[in-house]
């Protein structure tokens, strides 16, 4: 309820201001590098990564496995300190600061002793922002993602895909504005996946939160994003930045348009090249 009014305020702000971009970006990552030392062997995971998520923008990251995408999220969330570089949110330096983002981890990581409803409310509980209507709101959303009847079930009673949807809701209902989603649909079958994509697209176009989204699925990235960053293999750095031109609201049909297919081919080509390069190097 309060979220809706917040979102409205934000929208009017943007419309009324002469230049939409006078507000500082929701997230600005600049010059991030990171190495891990494990058993005296140093692995360079990220190399001079800079990227931006403007207010109410949907931005995706695609890149080969192991290129440091999840590690980047851990740094934005303040869990891991970068060796170099800074992280800004809404113009303020938040490097190493926790509790500023809403997060969906790669593994659902639902708390097994909490019911689905309690799991979904966890982020608000931690921040102390739960209001009277929170439980009803959670139930309303659970029904929307096809989890009605499971409000009081424990996570182990759900399938992998259902757990992922619950973890997604936990991020969606979190009080923080910026959402980091780490491969939210990876455990879903193709059909459910495209259904969830469409659902997320619609939801996002209604609510316009700032989102940073990791995926391996190029079509998914093209369908949802305003911008896509293509990462190189390890050490991860940004190879290409693609601005996705399709107007909103987007409908499923754009996936058949020639322009979409061209972009898709281009991105797949880049990904294949990176994967091939990685394959030739001895792994690690």
């Amino acid at each position: 309820m309060s979220q809706a009014t917040q979102i409205e305020q934000r929208t009017t702000e943007v419309i009324s201001s002469p230049e939409a971009h006078t507000a500082p970006p929701a997230l600005e990552v600049s010059g991030i590098s990171k190495s891990f030392t494990h058993r005296r062997r140093e692995t360079n995971v990220l190399n001079n990564v800079s990227l931006k998520v403007e207010q109410q923008e949907f931005v995706s990251i695609v890149g080969p496995s192991g290129c440091g995408k999840s590690t980047l999220f851990h740094m934005i969330g303040g869990l891991v300190k970068p060796d170099a570089g800074t992280i800004l949110m809404n113009g303020k330096i938040v490097t190493g600061q926790r509790g500023e983002i809403s997060y969906m981890p790669q593994q659902p990581a639902l708390f097994p002793w909490r019911t689905i409803e309690d799991n979904v409310l966890l982020a608000g509980e931690i921040k102390g922002t739960l209001r009277d209507g929170a439980r009803e709101e959670a139930r309303h959303w659970l029904a929307k993602v096809g989890l009605s009847g499971f409000e009081h079930a424990y996570p182990h009673m759900l399938s992998g895909g259902m757990q992922q949807r619950a973890a997604f809701l936990r991020a969606l209902l979190a009080p923080q504005e910026l959402m980091l989603l780490d491969e939210p649909f990876s455990a879903l079958d193709a059909l459910t996946r495209s259904e969830m994509q469409r659902w997320l697209l619609e939801l996002w176009e209604e609510n316009r939160r700032s989102v940073l989204f990791i995926t391996h699925n190029i079509e998914e990235a093209l369908l949802l994003s305003n911008r896509i960053y293509v990462f190189s293999g390890r050490p991860g750095s940004i190879l290409h930045t693609v601005d996705v031109p399709f107007p909103r609201p987007r409908r499923d049909e754009i996936t058949d348009s020639p322009e979409f297919l061209k972009l898709k081919r281009q991105l797949s080509q880049w990904m294949r090249e990176e994967q091939a390069k990685n394959g030739k190097q001895p792994s690690k």
Partner: peptide, 21 residues
């Protein structure tokens, strides 16, 4: 669990919240 621990920390949980929850 490490992933849950990471989640708690990134969500801004205090030491006490991590302990009790």
């Amino acid at each position: 669990d490490q992933v849950m621990m990471n989640y708690m920390k990134m969500a801004g949980a205090s030491k006490w919240q991590i302990f009790t929850k």
